[in-house]
């Protein structure tokens, strides 16, 4: 069970991190103002839990939507990037150069143009996870699987749809891994956008908690972010495994 495995990993890391934080507090005698006690964290969770759950669901929805947009866009551009003709070369060169730029730095410009609403968050989430997807897709779609394609080429049956099917199938594990990895990036992009200027989502909640220097609120928000990310990533992995099992007949 991938979901349980991921949740267990997340809970373990979160508990260890909290333990370390409180150990530091005890060793150095930090006040409750700087590092809240476990009881205070629980109290904050009880008081603000529902509000924070709504905020993290809002963030996750934007991240998932941005992720889906990025996958569709990367697939479409990847199909052009696999070509040996000039549009393909141009796409590859543009993709390699653009991905080298820290794209999060353009986020303020996006907020300038689109305001602090949904569209800015969606766009930033999509842009941040788009380039890793695109580079992987171009690499996968452009790389022949010689051992399988040879027969179709020899007998004159090869076409771009068949090539794509073969290359996608042969690299299914790689594609799923890239999609899972970019899912985390989509979450990162959305939260970064909310930190910067948005007026909704868990990033906005954390920003407010930061202004109040309230670590308890931040710890509760981090817990919910981790929980949602783990659930989303394990869902993608499960879907990927299911697709693979269906295709390979395993």
């Amino acid at each position: 069970m991938k979901i349980l495995e991921r949740l267990f990993q997340f809970f373990s890391i979160y508990i260890v991190a909290l333990g370390l934080l409180w150990a530091v507090k005890i060793v150095y005698g930090f006040s409750d103002y700087l590092i809240p006690s476990p009881l205070e964290v629980l109290q904050i969770a009880r008081e603000n839990g529902l509000l924070y759950v709504k905020a993290v669901l809002n963030t996750s929805a934007v991240a998932v939507a941005g992720h889906m947009i990025a996958i569709v866009l990367a697939t479409a551009v990847g199909l052009v990037g696999r070509l040996n003709s000039w549009p393909g070369s141009l796409t590859r060169i543009a993709a390699y150069n653009l991905q080298a730029y820290p794209i999060v730095a353009v986020a303020p410009i996006i907020f300038l143009f689109f305001g602090d609403g949904l569209s800015s968050r969606l766009l930033i989430a999509a842009i941040i996870c788009y380039f890793p997807l695109l580079l992987s897709f171009i690499g996968i779609f452009a790389e022949p699987v010689e051992e399988v394609e040879h027969f179709y080429r020899m007998t004159g049956r090869i076409n771009w749809r068949l090539e794509l099917a073969i290359r996608t199938f042969e690299n299914l594990d790689k594609i799923i891994t890239v999609i899972v990895g970019s899912g985390t990036l989509a979450m990162v992009g959305t939260i970064v956008a909310e930190f910067l200027a948005a007026s909704q989502g868990i990033g906005y909640v954390i920003r407010k908690a930061l202004y109040q220097s309230n670590l308890a609120k931040i710890l509760v928000a981090l817990f919910l972010i981790g929980l949602c990310s783990s659930l989303y990533l394990s869902l993608i992995e499960t879907i990927g495994k299911w697709i693979k099992a269906r295709l390979t007949g395993e």
């Binding site: 007998t155 042969e170 390979t248």
Partner: peptide, 14 residues
Amino acid sequence: LYTHSAERLPGWET
């Protein structure tokens, strides 16, 4: 036609 021993059939069908 040219065939060699490293060729494979697509894995999505029997």
